[in-house]
Design a protein around this nucleic acid. Structure first.
Lengths: 243, 243
DNA sequence: CTAATAAACGTAAATATGACGTTTATTAAA
DNA sequence: TTTAATAAACGTCATATTTACGTTTATTAG
C-alpha cells in the first residue's frame, strides 16, 4: 500500500579538527527531556537537524540549520545520503522525544556533512548546548544518528582521497604534519612522514609562507597555505583508475 | 513556515552497456498522455520511479521498481542523491501528468542508479515500453530527470575509478578492449590501448579464460573474467591520495 | 653546554606510467 | 592461393612515483 506522504528533515554531521589533540570531532547537541515528575527520560546527544521549509531547497535547509548552530555560512557541504527506514525513529526514547502527532508518518532525513575550521566557531555561544566530540569516542546518540555519522565518515574517507577537501578542516596556515595527522585521523591509517612530506611539498598548490610556528617547545615547523585557485587551474580531475 | 509533510518517491537511473555499438545506455519509459480531445499533451521519456511504500526501506523500494521494470533483482545499486527543489515538478507538462490532488505538496525523490548487463534484460517484454537510449543522445525528458541522469553519470564516473564496478556492466566474459571502451564511454576520455592492456592484464583478479571471441571477422580476442573474490582478498581499499 | 625531540632533508631500489614502435592472427578480396 | 586490411597482442625505453628506510638540523628544557 503506497504511503504518499512523509516527514522530511535534514540532518547535519558537522566535522571539525583539533590540531592540538589531533582529533577529528563531530558537533552534537544535547537531547534532554524531563517528565512532569522530574524524571530524566532522555539524556543523550543528537545531530542538529530540522524540517525542510516549504519554499526551501534541501541544500538551503541544511545551510540554515548550520547557520543556526554555528553562525557560519559558506562552509563545505555535502549531501551524502537519505535515511528513511520505516522504523528509524521507533525506539522508546525517540517516541517520547518527537512530536507524535506530526510524526505518525515515517520521517525521512536527507543527511549532509559539513567541514569547518574549529577556530571559526565558538560553540559555547549557541542555544543548543552544542559540544565537540571525538569521532573515536562518541557519546550515546539518539535516533539513528550513530549510523548517520558512520556513513558520513565513510563518505568523507573516499572524498578526501579524491579532492583536497582536507584543507577545509585545517586553519588557513598549517604545517605539513598537520595535514598528515588529519589524513591519519580521517582514514585511520599510518603514513610515512618522510614520503608524505615530499609528496605534499611538491604540489604547486601547497604554498610555503614566510612564517613558522610560534610558541612550540621544539623546532618550529614551516607554515604553508593551500591555494584553491592554483589547484583548479591544474585541470583536475585526475582520471586515475586505481582499482 | 515548516512544511512537515512531503511526497516521497524513488527514481532509478538504469545503466547498461552495449559492447557492439560501444554505447553507455540508460533505460527510459515513455510518458504519454492524451486529453479527451485526443490531443497529445505529453510525449517524452522519464526514469522509472514510484512512491515509497509504507513498510519499505528506500533501498527495497528502489529494488522493487527495478524488478517491475526488468525482472531483475541483485543488481549493483547505489543511492546517490535526493532531489527536492520546491519547484522541481512545476512545469506545465508535469502538472498535467501528475496526480494534482496527491501532489499539491512538494515531491522529494531519492535517486538510485543501477548497473546491469544488457544481455540479462529483455526490455520488449515489460508493460512500460521501456527503451535503451545512449547517454550521449537522450530524448526529451520529463520532470527534472535530465538533471538526475547527469548527476548519476557524475557519480558513476567517480565511483568507477575507485571500485571495480565497471564489470557489473560487462558480460561475464569480456575482452580487454571491452573494458577500455567502457571506461572511455563512461569517462569521456581516450586511453592508450597498449598501456591500458598492460595495466589490466597485470591485475590478479582479471582471469584469462581458455576461450576466444567467435564470429568476429578479425583476429579474435582473448576472453577474460573478473574475480570479485580475488579482488576482495587483496585488501582493498586503496588509500591512494590522488589530490 | 647538553640531551631530547620534532622538523626537515636525503637516497636507492622497485614499481608504475606515458609515449610510442612492432608483430601476429584472422578474414575478405584479389 | 596469395595478399591487403585490420584489430589484437606484444615490446621498449625514458621518466615519474612509490616504498622503505637513514641522517641532519633547529629548537627548548634542564
Amino acid at each position: 500500500m503506497p504511503n504518499k506522504i512523509s516527514n522530511i528533515s535534514v540532518d547535519c554531521v558537522v566535522f571539525g579538527y583539533d590540531t592540538i589533540t589531533k582529533s577529528l570531532n563531530v558537533l552534537l547537541i544535547k537531547r534532554y527531556l524531563e517528565s512532569k515528575e522530574k524524571e530524566v527520560l532522555v539524556d543523550d546527544y543528537v545531530l542538529t537537524g530540522y524540517h525542510v521549509y516549504e519554499d526551501e531547497t534541501l541544500d538551503d535547509s541544511a545551510t540554515r540549520v548550520l547557520k543556526e548552530l554555528t553562525g557560519l555560512t559558506n562552509q563545505y557541504k555535502k549531501q551524502f545520503k537519505a535515511f528513511g527506514d520505516p522504523d528509524r525513529l521507533l525506539s522508546e526514547k525517540d517516541l517520547i522525544w518527537i512530536d507524535k502527532e506530526a510524526f505518525s508518518l515515517r520521517t525521512i532525513t536527507i543527511a549532509y556533512y559539513f567541514l569547518l575550521k574549529t577556530e571559526d566557531v565558538d560553540v559555547t555561544r549557541n542555544k543548543y548546548q552544542a559540544k565537540w566530540f571525538p569521532l573515536r569516542s562518541l557519546p550515546e546518540l539518539g535516533f539513528d544518528h550513530k549510523k548517520i555519522i558512520e556513513e558520513a565518515h565513510e563518505d568523507l574517507k573516499t572524498k578526501c582521497l579524491a579532492e583536497p577537501i582536507i584543507f577545509e578542516l585545517l586553519p588557513d596556515k598549517f604545517t605539513i604534519n598537520d595535514v598528515q595527522d588529519l589524513y591519519e585521523s580521517i582514514l585511520g591509517i599510518e603514513i610515512d612522514n618522510r614520503n608524505f612530506r615530499r609528496k605534499l611539498i611538491n604540489k604547486k598548490y601547497i604554498i610555503p609562507l614566510d612564517e613558522k610556528q610560534v610558541g612550540v617547545s621544539k623546532k618550529p615547523a614551516q607554515l604553508y597555505m593551500f591555494s584553491k585557485d592554483i589547484y583548479k587551474k591544474m585541470y583536475h580531475k585526475n582520471y586515475l583508475i586505481s582499482i
